[in-house]
Design a protein around this nucleic acid. Structure first.
Lengths: 96, 96, 96, 96
DNA sequence: TTAAGCGATAGTTTCC
DNA sequence: GGAAACTATCGCTTAA
């Protein structure tokens, strides 16, 4: 074994396996981008589309809970678009 | 067309294509992780391994057309990293 | 002028100005992190807190519109927590 | 305590501190942009300039303790980037 | 003026 | 629990 005791062949094999996988991953990422582009070309809003995908990935229960906490915070700050709450704060005075 | 003018089927198709691709990507990412774990189990330092992979990736990238201009700037600043160039900057402390 | 026509002093001045500013920026970013940590230590959920900050940064009108589009998409997909709409589209095909 | 047990005042204080810091950060980011613009107006290539700044930032980071180990690995792979090392490794196998 | 590519930043997740 | 890495989002810059 040369090279300071490092098993070069084995190391090289690991590195190359990783690089191959990374390459595949990159190609798929590019494919994803293409799909978003195609969707956009068909009139969909890519940004919203991303949101949709993200929402679908989330566990519904977890999502609900997070929303509840968020609502709580927003209410504590007096900014509340609470779903439950009919009155959406009609006071644009906040803008001042 | 129902649903406020949104073509639900088309939308669904896009979303599902994306989700499928994301799934594949995730699997490959997991494979990468496995390789790192295996390398580690074989006595390699994963952190260093990552560095190697990163280096090998960025090295070709740095050999772009603009390298000449960059070199020019670096020389103007008295910083020379040039691999080819034997003589580094005057701080030989690095050699230690 | 040496160094291939690059005005080294001027270049250096620019680089150093940028670096100084970047340094300041980093310090502020660290301060922000500290505040989040402190908030967390006081029982607030940092993740939600970030959401709150993000929401406040957004133009309310813009936000509202985005939400509307999102709702539209979710309804088209049959995933609807629509506030307004009691009953969404009746196509349960999605269930399949 | 109203608002579902959330301490509104404290929350507001945190949020406002964050927002103030973010504002400062943004101003500095704008300053940076200005410097790049000014450099460009003086005939420098902003893109390259960014590269220079990036390089200068990451270079110290790379001179870490682990450099020795990294060298070991690179040598095992037959890749020698060593700045110090004049001789670029005569093994062009890498080209394959 | 807008689209697209790119770079930087922020956020999430994973490992230690 | 803290640090590091990776991912994703966002904004700028540039070109059409």
């Amino acid at each position: 074994m040369v090279n300071g005791g490092i098993a070069g062949d084995q190391l090289r094999a690991f590195v190359e396996r990783i690089e191959r996988l990374e390459e595949e991953k990159k190609q798929i990422a590019d494919d994803v981008k293409d799909v978003y582009a195609e969707a956009k070309a068909n009139g969909f809003d890519a940004k919203i589309l991303r949101q949709v995908v993200r929402l679908r990935k989330q566990d519904p229960a977890e999502r609900t809970e997070q929303e509840a906490v968020l609502d709580l915070y927003l209410q504590a700050l007096g900014m509340r678009f609470s779903v439950i709450d009919g009155e959406a704060d009609s006071a644009p005075a906040a803008a001042a």
